[in-house]
Design a protein around this nucleic acid. Structure first.
Length: 504
RNA sequence: GGCGCGUUGGUCAAUCGGCUAAGACGCCUCCCUUUCACGGAGGAAUGACGGGUUCGACUCCCGUACGUGCUACCA
């Protein structure tokens, strides 16, 4: 069975911006297409990077998108534990196995030793590789006795991979095809740190093997270290079980110059996180797509289309359609600049194609935040159908709806004042009175009544519509005025007319 | 600097050797609407550059340029 996994750093800023969620989404789509499992992993090897609450935030963010892992830290699974720090002894065990088989070695170098090497103290190289390793303090240069002595004295050490010389390491990437690297250019990566925690390189290989992962998706930034992982699969004797790799293109800043980062959001005025996130360390508030008024369906749709294309002209896809159509082959190779205007268009399109029923919970929530609690669901449904084509973000429903429930807080009388006449004043006074005797309260009858009176008083009905709109909405927007008039009711209509006339 | 990956309009992109190079976002014009939208019709705007291979190249190959990533006891 197919198992696709996504790994996250233990902080939202470390992984759960747009790129991270997209990796999870593609992993989920790929897994579900084949009826397989989506596995969520959380990194927490580096205590300095751990952020309180981040794990739950990651799980919540994915859940909002409709991505529910089949295995993961919060739900478990038969290959647990799923949290890195709880698998510590496993990594040590395999690191030792590599030392024994001669594919890894102990290194006792201090920070100063490493710094010296990086400053170029040795010829040919300034990284820990086949050139420099013979100058360093490790079990390759030390005698067996010396090494054992240092270990016995509990000298801090790391375990490094012994990268072979003059080998071409090749692997197949599902998106990019065959990729080859010369082993001479690779460095002896640390596998097990001095605190006995694994680095990503060791952990990712051990975990993927033990959890029987079949497909590993990750960002393109991992491509340069993929040969290290291939080497590890081989040296641990698991080459036959190596997952298929897919390195996803990067999401770049809209204005060029690099990967999209958490700070770009506020700099450019759009969210880069799924949900609001209050960083407990810095107390910095990052904004999320959800809180900005995105429908999860639209967010998922937008993200899916950003780096993948079905090949057809259709742009709007539900999660199920995405699952059906998704394929690794159609993921793009090149990074793309994020376009928030397009993102908003997806949301607008989703609001547009959603039934009022489906939008109702969102609208209720938005209105209740402003202390408006509609009592009549049927009429709310009707109001939603009147205004939904005018909303880009869900939050727009407040601006587009509130005047159905409350008198407008401001009247933009500047739009009518210059052309205001005593005749118009008279008209509205008369009409307000005439409404008391209107035979039925229907949109059509209100409109007919209005137009007939206008004709009697010899005023063009069109000239009176803008003032009426300002009375009801407060500004120059919104659906048909008679629809609004009908919806708010006769008394409220009369009240708003009066308020307006007083304001003039 | 070294190495990896990439390069079709302003942006997202289709094309898997036949191109008069789709579509979408954004922008502009017009229609609809005496509001704002939605909707409809139209418009401007693209193969980085230089060599090959081929009857034919956006598509394949090689160089160059540019972009981007990695080069930590971070992921």
């Amino acid at each position: 069975m197919q198992k696709v996994r996504t790994r996250f750093a233990p902080s939202p800023t470390g992984g759960l911006h747009l790129g991270g969620v997209r990796t999870a989404l593609y992993s989920y789509l790929l897994a579900k297409k084949q009826g397989g499992d989506f596995v969520l992993r959380i990194e927490d090897t580096d205590q300095n990077r751990y952020v309180e609450g981040a794990e739950q935030y990651i799980i919540d963010s994915l859940a909002w998108c409709g991505i529910i892992p089949d295995e993961g830290p919060h739900i478990g699974g038969q290959y647990g534990p799923y949290r890195q720090s709880e698998r510590k002894n496993l990594y040590t065990q395999y690191a030792m196995q590599l030392v024994k088989s001669g594919h890894a070695y102990y290194a006792f170098d201090t920070t100063e030793d490493l710094e010296k090497m990086r400053q170029g103290a040795y010829e040919h190289s300034n990284q820990y590789d086949h050139h420099t390793r013979r100058h360093m303090k490790n079990s390759l240069t030390l005698s067996e006795d010396e090494t054992q002595k240092l270990l016995a004295e509990k000298t801090p050490f790391v375990i490094r991979l012994l990268v072979p010389e003059n080998e071409i390491i090749s692997f197949y990437d599902e998106i990019r095809g065959d990729i080859q690297n010369n082993s001479n250019l690779l460095d002896d990566k640390v596998l097990l740190k001095a605190d006995a925690m694994p680095t990503y390189h060791l952990a990712v290989v051990v975990d993927d093997y033990l959890m029987k992962i079949t497909h590993a998706l990750r960002g393109e930034e991992w491509l340069p270290s993929a040969p290290i992982h291939v080497l590890l699969w081989k040296y641990l004797g698991w080459e036959h079980a190596m997952p298929k790799w897919a390195h996803l293109p990067l999401i770049l800043k809209p204005d060029g110059n690099g990967k999209l980062s958490k700070r770009d959001g506020e700099r450019l005025g759009f969210p880069v996180f799924t949900l609001n996130w209050l960083d407990p360390n810095t107390e910095h508030q990052y904004f999320g797509f959800k809180e900005m008024g995105f429908m999860p369906e639209a967010f998922v749709n937008m993200l899916a289309m950003f780096g993948w294309h079905s090949g057809e002209e259709q742009e709007l896809f539900s999660m199920q359609e995405l699952i059906d159509k998704f394929s690794l082959e159609r993921i793009h190779k090149s990074g793309a600049k994020f376009d928030f205007e397009k993102a908003k268009w997806f949301n607008q399109a989703w609001i547009h194609q959603s039934d009022s029923d489906a939008l109702m919970p969102y609208v209720k929530e938005i209105l209740s935040q402003k202390n408006i609690t509609p009592t009549d669901e049927k009429s709310l449904l009707h109001i939603i159908s009147l205004v939904k084509d005018r909303c880009v973000l869900l939050n727009d429903f407040y601006t587009q709806c509130y005047y159905f429930f409350r008198a407008p807080h401001q009247l933009a009388i500047q739009h009518v004042k210059p052309k205001w006449t005593e005749e118009k004043n008279q008209f509205f006074k008369s009409w307000s009175g005439a409404l008391d005797h209107i035979e039925s309260w229907q949109v059509e009858s209100i409109e007919t009544n209005f137009k007939q009176l206008a004709e009697q008083l010899q005023i063009k009905a069109g000239e009176l519509q803008m003032p009426l709109r300002i009375m009801l909405v407060g500004d120059k927007y919104g659906p048909n005025v008679f629809q609004i008039a009908h919806s708010i009711g006769k008394e409220e209509l009369q009240k708003r007319i009066q308020t307006f006339l007083n304001a003039l």
